[in-house]
């Protein structure tokens, strides 16, 4: 616990220092890495540690983002941290329900069901256009910066995002290191053996969904806070699949992998866009270049580096006795 806390504090200090060195937009990118990291970390618990492949993680971000959006719009007097807790709670509830429904499903059946969740859930906004904004969604500004703090708002947002993310990660790291983590891994490695060892497999899977959904909900809430929007067009299956891809890119089953995955996702996006601009190709080619490059990187990394970026990093330095979580 103490070690994780110290590590998180050091990370926070480093990030705060970094935000002073970069331009306001890069601060948004830093914050983006933060909330994506949390979302991918949640997926790591579910898929990496428990072996449940979910293609619907975006649904929990959707719930988190809309919870924050609705509270900001309809209950403006609530402080922001209450909104965030509510986002985590709402997503957690959805996670328990999903987990309960999904606990009996195997492999591709779970994948299919969660994909249907990612596609179906955002359609709720169409059913309640007055309350949820229909396909336009909700737009708003979250005021959280106390008067008197004289820094660019994007820098402040980066702080808030990373403070939340690191706090959540400390809890997550302790959770996965402890008894819960051992149970999750036992279920992943062999459900039957885990059951024989007295582990309640169904309950363990639901726990994994709960933890994963809370992370997703927080990430969605932070995204809403950072960008001031919650709209169905942001929560397409492409988001869920992108998060899964980020987890595999970074390295399955480790929170460090989640970090590398989130960084890779943001860097890839920025890099391929710049590439398309720099090459000045004919429009149809340039327009699709980022997509193609993203796909090629996914294929190449998985084929060449089975352990993802984290595996690569680990191979490059001597193994410490206490490897990362």
């Amino acid at each position: 616990m103490l070690r994780h806390l110290l590590l998180a504090l050091a990370a926070l200090a480093a990030i705060v220092a970094l935000t002073f060195l970069v331009d306001p937009f890069t601060n948004i990118r830093i914050a983006t890495v933060g909330y994506l990291l949390l979302a991918v970390a949640g997926l790591t618990v579910l898929t990496g540690l428990t072996g449940q492949i979910s293609l619907g993680h975006g649904a929990f971000l959707f719930i988190g983002a809309y919870t924050v959006a609705l509270l900001v719009v309809y209950v403006p007097s609530l402080p922001f941290w209450v909104d965030l807790l509510a986002a985590a709670a709402a997503a957690g509830l959805a996670g328990v329900l999903t987990g309960a429904a999904a606990a009996r499903l195997h492999g591709p059946y779970l994948a299919g069901a969660t994909l249907a969740l990612a596609v179906g859930l955002p359609a709720i906004t169409q059913r309640f256009p007055d309350f949820l904004g229909g396909s336009n969604g909700l737009g708003f500004t979250v005021n959280s910066k106390p008067a008197g703090i004289d820094i660019p708002s994007t820098q402040w947002q980066a702080w808030i995002v990373w403070l939340t993310v690191l706090a959540a990660l400390v809890l997550l790291a302790n959770l996965t290191r402890g008894r819960v983590g051992r149970r999750l891994r036992a279920v992943r490695d062999d459900e039957v053996a885990a059951g024989l060892a007295g582990i309640h497999v169904g309950r363990t899977k639901i726990t994994a969904f709960l933890v994963s959904a809370v992370c997703g909900g927080l990430a969605g809430g932070l995204q809403a806070f950072l960008l001031g929007t919650a709209a169905p067009g942001s929560f397409t299956p492409a988001l869920s699949l992108g998060l899964l891809a980020a987890m595999v890119l970074g390295g399955v089953g480790s929170l460090w992998g989640a970090l590398w995955g989130a960084v890779a996702l943001v860097a890839l996006q920025a890099g391929t866009e710049e590439l398309a601009h720099a090459l000045e190709l004919g429009t149809d080619v340039a327009n699709n270049l980022p997509l193609a490059a993203y796909g090629v990187v996914l294929i190449a990394v998985v084929m060449a580096f089975p352990q993802g970026i984290h595996g690569l990093v680990r191979r490059m330095r001597p193994v410490k006795p206490e490897g990362a979580a």
Partner: peptide, 21 residues
């Protein structure tokens, strides 16, 4: 020209990039 894929989240990102960076 920035591609936002008609995704509002991306719109906010690319517009902030255009303006701030």
């Amino acid at each position: 020209v920035e591609d936002d894929g008609y995704n509002p989240t991306r719109t906010v990102e690319v517009v902030k990039k255009l303006v701030l960076q």
